[in-house]
């Protein structure tokens, strides 16, 4: 999911110069991924919406410090993730994420081409295992696999070094593997 249309660079540059219309375009094209990010981090639709709105408003204020030509999406998502983080902390809770569909998912048993899709129960188990990870490992899994961000994007979004992304990913996968392969 590279999701960085070439327009982003031009739009961000215009927005940086104070063009509100250009910024609105950026809001329009990134609000879905921003909401998904905030929701997956908070587990609450209301908190996520707040975080997205506040994140965009702060991004607008922070645009003069945005490095021209660099990718807009991870920079924005970092601000949104910070907002989400603060909200989750202030509420002192993180509601568990749920799988779509609950029971009786049609085609639940249909094998994927790679045979990678496990049964619903196994997936619930895997999700529960993700939920039991330490917060920072869970954030890595969320960014890398649920949001499908690259290592570089993840490093930007979480404000950590790329090497740390690699090591935390490896650690999180090792913990999950214990559950999946038991």
């Amino acid at each position: 999911m590279e999701g960085r249309p070439p327009d982003d660079v031009a739009l961000a540059q215009r927005a940086r110069n104070g063009d509100e219309r250009a910024f609105e375009e950026l809001v329009r094209s990134h609000q879905r991924i921003a909401f998904r990010t905030a929701y997956l981090l908070t587990g609450s639709a209301a908190d996520a919406e707040d975080a997205v709105q506040a994140g965009f408003v702060k991004a607008w204020a922070a645009l003069p410090r945005f490095r021209a030509g660099s990718p807009f999406r991870p920079w924005l998502l970092r601000i949104v993730a910070n907002e989400a983080h603060n909200r989750r902390r202030s509420e002192g809770r993180a509601e568990a994420l749920r799988l779509r569909s609950g029971r009786g998912l049609p085609g639940d048993a249909a094998p994927s081409p790679e045979g990678a899709v496990v049964s619903f129960e196994r997936r619930e188990e895997l999700l529960a295992a993700v939920g039991r990870l330490e917060e920072r490992d869970r954030e890595i899994v969320t960014c890398r696999y649920f949001l499908e961000l690259s290592e570089d994007e993840t490093a930007t979004v979480l404000g950590i070094r790329r090497g740390t992304v690699k090591s935390r990913t490896a650690r999180a996968l090792a913990r999950l593997r214990e559950v999946v392969e038991e």
């Binding site: 609000q31 998904r36 919406e49 997205v52 994420l97 997936r123 696999y145």
Partner: peptide, 26 residues
Amino acid sequence: ELERALVSLGHELEVPEAPDVVAAVR
């Protein structure tokens, strides 16, 4: 395989429809 399972799990997560925040942000 585990990484692929996680990506596929991500597609199955229940995420509410993203609200349109353009006007509110503006």
